[in-house]
Each structure stands twice: as C-alpha cells, then as structure tokens.
Design a protein around this nucleic acid. Structure first.
Lengths: 336, 336
DNA sequence: CTGTTAGCGCTTTCAG
DNA sequence: CTGAAAGCGCTAACAG
C-alpha cells in the first residue's frame, strides 16, 4: 500500500489540489457534494496529511516538549501521565527529554528545542541549574514555557507547583504536635525553589513554636545517593540524634527509611519520619511513615492545560501566574 | 532575535543557498574557506536547520515513537530511560504515547503513527490487545517496529524480552526448594506472551518436580486492582491456602504483599512470595520478598539500539530475531 | 464554488 | 568549486 497524498486524491477525483485541501479542512467555499466525494475517498484510502509538510507550512507542529530531570521516579512519571492525557485530548504530540540533573544537557536540549521543533515546552529544571539563560532564550524565541514543580524564580513565565511553603510549615508542625523536639530537615539544592520554600516553611514553623533552628540538623543532600545515605546514617548515630525527620523529597524519605531499618531504629517509635512522597510509593514503605503527597498527576495536567490554552490563543507568553496545586498530609495510623 | 534560516545565511555571505547547504553538511565539493565562512556565521547566528523542512525533504524525521500501556510504573519508566539514552546519543527524538491498556486507543495511536510522523516505533502492547492488524499495517507501511516486553507472537518483527519461560521455571523451582508444596500462580492476560510463557515455566517446573498443577491455584488477574486484591485475599483465606505465591507481574506482587499484611500473614513465614519486580520497588517491599528483577533499562536500550541499527542501514524490517535480556532472581535474606 | 500559483526551508540534481 | 532550479506535501492568496 503506497502512501497517498493530497495530489493523489486530487488526480483520482479530477480536482485541483487546493480544492481537495479545502474540502478536507471543511472549508465553507466547497460544495457539499465535492466535500463528500473527497472525504469518502480520503477515508477509503486512509489518507493522513503528512505531518511535516503541515508543520512546515503552518509553522507549528502540534507537538510539545517535556524536559525533566529524570523519569524513573514516581513524581515525574505521573506528571507525564497527566501531560500526556491532556495532550492526547487536544491532539498534541509529546516529546520527552531527560536531563539527568545535568545542567549542560539541559542547555543543549533547550537550544535544540529553540528552533521550531515544538510549539511549547513544559520544564522541570535540573537541580544543578542556576543560570537560566538557555530557558530565557526560548522565551525570547517566542516559544512558550510553563514550569512545573522544579521552577526557577528568575524567569517570567507561568509556574505550577505544590504549596511548598505551606506544606513545609504544616509538615513541621505535624511533627511538633507529635512531640518531636529535635527535628531534622533533609534539604535539596538551594537553587530549587521547591527546596528553598519547603525549608523556609520548616524554619518558620520551628520559630513560631519557639524551637531553635539548629544548623547541624539541616542536611544538604547531594546528587549522590550513597553519600546521602551515609550522612543520614551519621546524623542518626550522633549523640543529639533527632527525634523527627522531615525529608523534603521522596528519594530522601526512602533513604531515611532504609537507614532506620539498618540501624534498627523503629519508625515512629524512635524517630518520627515525614516525607514528601507519592502515595503509591508511600504505601510500600513502612506504613507508619507520614507523607505529604504531591499531586503529580494534577500538576502535569494543570501545566499542560495552561500551555495549550496559551497556544490556542496564540499567546506567546503564557503569563507569569503561579498556580498552586495542593498537596495533602497523610498519616497512616494503622500498623498493618 | 529573529529565526535565521539558510536563506538568511546565504544572503549575508553572498552565496547561493545550495552552497550554504552543502557547506553545512560538510560536502566535499565546497572549498575549505567557504566552509569555514559558512560554519562561522552559522555558529555566530546560532543557526539550526528547520526540523520540519528537513524531515519533509528527506522523508525521515529522526524521531521514534514509543507506545506503551502505562508510564506510572517502574518497568516502563526505566525502559523509557533506556530508550531515551540511546536516542539522545544517536540524535533521535522520542515521542511518547500511552494506551492505558486500551485496545482502541492503541489502534488509534498506531494509525496516526503510520503516516510518516516517526521513522520507527517501539511498542509494548496493551493487555487487551489480541488482534494486531493495526500493527501489521505499520509494518506494511514500511515503518519498522520493535516490540519489547509485551510482545505479540503473531507478527514478524524483532522482539526484546526477558527470559520469561526460564524465569517462570526457575522462580517456581526456587519456591519448591524452599519447601513449598502448594504454589499459586498469579497470571495476567493470556494474550500476552509474557504471561503465557511465565506460566508455562511454572507449570513445567511443577510437573518436573511431580507436583500436581491445580486449577484453583492459578489466578487470572484482571485490569481492576481492587478485584485482584479481593481474589488474592480469598485465595489466602481458603482452606487449602497456598504456601507459596508466584506473582507474574509487579503489580500483583505488591497486591499480594498488601493482602498478606492485612491478613496478618508473615512473609516468608506463612507464605513464601516471589514476584517479578523491579529492584527499586522491591527494596521498598518487605525485604523477605524474593524477586525476579526485570532489566527494564537494558531492555529499553536494547530495543532502541536494534531499531536505530535498522534505521541507519535503511532496513525496513528489523528482522524477526527474538533478543532475550536476562533477568535475575534476587533473594534478600536479611531482615534488616 | 474551483483552479492556478507561490512559498514554508531544505536538499539535490543538473549546469556551469 | 558554486549557482539555478525543482520539488518534498501542504496551505492560502489571488483569480476566475
């Protein structure tokens, strides 16, 4: 079966190419009968317009790019699921790019994307990323960006995140209410607003409850899981061992869980642990682990929706609103 | 900053468009100096060829499509990571499509993909899929397909899977060696060779060890998680309760884990559980759960590599080899 | 209502 | 070594 194009249809029907084209896009200037003839044959021959010819001609590709640090991760795979759902519904295609938390890779991907391959971009920046010139270039090249989760404060576009500050605050308060006196905070990159805000919530909650903020209880996590494991381990073996741990990110909650198991510390008996996490993952962990679940799927959907709205209105810059999708603190009491 | 195209470069340099084009592709018929002039300016102006013009002209898009049932799943997200890695290295772009295990969606996606949007496809079929005419159509349209993990036996292309039969066999033997007398098998769709083969391994292992195969111990899982949970629960509450469970898929291993917890059954004390699973997930589960870890990342890489090899050799049908990436049985003895 | 034509940006004959 | 011109498949302005 050879690929059929608009020219083939035209010849078969003894019509001009343009007539066929118009009939297919249901133009008002084509007679009903011609339309019908065209559509019928098109269907019969299973005609599909060549996507690249269309993209070239229209200067738009009905394709978006999604740039994320990693994918083997519940948060991002759920977010993609959300994005994909909206995209499919709107007839858009989704290109995936992974930065592996590598700033250089992020720059290279961004620059490839800057020249017409995609109509818009959804990005969650890498933890290494500080300078965001490469993303600003996209903005200048008039390709709309929406940030989600891992946002940068420095750029003027729409952002979709969870209520990071608030959940940092309420998570800490939760631990305080449970009787914790020495609460440790496992933080991530200070470039990431997600990290900064959650930590600010933690600090403010401590202050508001007249608990001193101790430097030694704030652990800066690295990209290296092994190292994190060691540091958490050291912390939990130290004399003034914390009685509560707030993991600002799922990966760190999991490490904490493993360290506790290895050290024979019971959760929540010896240490209360609270972590940002995904519900599915959390259900696999020690059920006594309280989690702040991030609505990854909703964040993905929301970000995609905003991007598509902008695209359909041909608005170049989707604006600089900051949409907040609420997370939920879930305490699983049962020890089943 | 306006987008610069080849025409702009040509004008700026007082050269013909074709000369610039050739210089950029490093053609032997262009003088070194001209080449240098062109390349320098191109770099300076950050010139990138329009991807759609190139695709249209060359009738290839340097893009592949990945069609999978779901993404919020360790196996598939790891596979994508592998695919993405190879693609990035070969300069290919990756479009993602999710079928949500829905046959109709799979058909619709396949037919969209049949007309030049992608140079090749990697697919893991949905559990509903039985008739594969839609995939054969792709094959007829000369777009190469490589199946991975969820393959169909009916179609004549390259397939990449784990050693399903062997691991079904050795997993069952493992349970037998641990002293299990009544081993239950939690199966999935019989359309999926992954399900059929694993089960065949289970059956043969029982037979070879003179253990009768009991119908009631073979549970056919559905797409509905709740239902699976209930059925596993019923099985474990039944009089002739199995002393070993072999979950043919991660999802079912997780459900089993939860059911055991709910019923107060200890693993591996009361029931020995063995499941196909991903290492990361397994490490979150009860550490006494023995797993057969599927090399998702490697499968993704392997499948992509084969596809790209075919593409670079302009071979339409990548062949019909069946590549097997070996899984590993991992028993975590420690109860840390 | 339908046809002719130009052109999206690029590659590639074919001619010098 | 370089240039002119055709054409990938499609849309849209312009003409009838």
């Amino acid at each position: 079966m050879d690929k059929v194009n608009i020219k083939g249809l035209a010849k078969e029907l003894n019509l001009a190419i343009s007539t066929v084209s118009r009939a297919l896009r249901d133009s008002y200037e084509i007679s009903p009968e011609t339309k019908h003839r065209v559509v019928t044959l098109a269907k019969k021959l299973n005609y599909q317009p060549n996507p690249y010819a269309t993209s070239l001609r229209n200067q738009k590709s009905r394709t978006i790019g999604v740039v994320i640090p990693e994918i083997a991760n519940n948060f991002f795979s759920l977010a993609i699921k959300g994005i994909q759902e909206v995209a499919q519904q709107k007839g858009y295609h989704v290109l995936i790019y992974l930065t592996h938390e590598d700033y250089k890779k992020e720059v290279s991907i961004a620059s490839h994307l800057a020249y017409g391959r995609v109509d818009g971009i959804l990005v969650s920046i890498s933890s290494e990323t500080n300078d965001i010139a490469h993303l600003e270039e996209l903005n200048n090249n008039k390709i709309p960006i929406v940030f989600f989760d891992r946002i940068s404060e420095k750029i003027n576009t729409t952002k979709v995140t969870t209520d990071d500050y608030k959940s940092g605050y309420s998570g800490t308060e939760h631990l305080i209410q449970k009787g914790c006196k020495k609460i440790s905070f496992l933080s991530i990159s200070e470039h990431l607003s997600i990290g900064v805000k959650r930590m600010q919530g933690y600090i403010d909650a401590l202050k508001d409850n007249n608990i001193p903020v101790e430097e030694r209880l704030i652990l800066k996590a690295s990209n290296d899981n092994e190292e994190n494991y060691k540091n958490i381990s050291k912390l939990l073996k130290s004399p003034g061992r914390p009685d509560g741990i707030f993991a600002s990110v799922e990966k760190l909650a999991i490490s904490t869980y493993h360290v506790c198991a290895a050290l024979g510390l019971s959760i929540p008996g010896d240490v209360k642990v609270l972590g940002f996490s995904n519900l599915e993952t959390a259900s696999l962990l020690n059920p006594s682990l309280t989690t702040i679940t991030q609505p990854a799927f909703e964040i993905g959907k929301e970000a995609a929706t905003i991007l598509f709205e902008g695209l359909s209105k041909k608005i170049v810059h989707p604006g600089n609103k900051h949409i907040i999708v609420h997370s939920e603190l879930i305490e699983r009491a049962s020890t089943r």
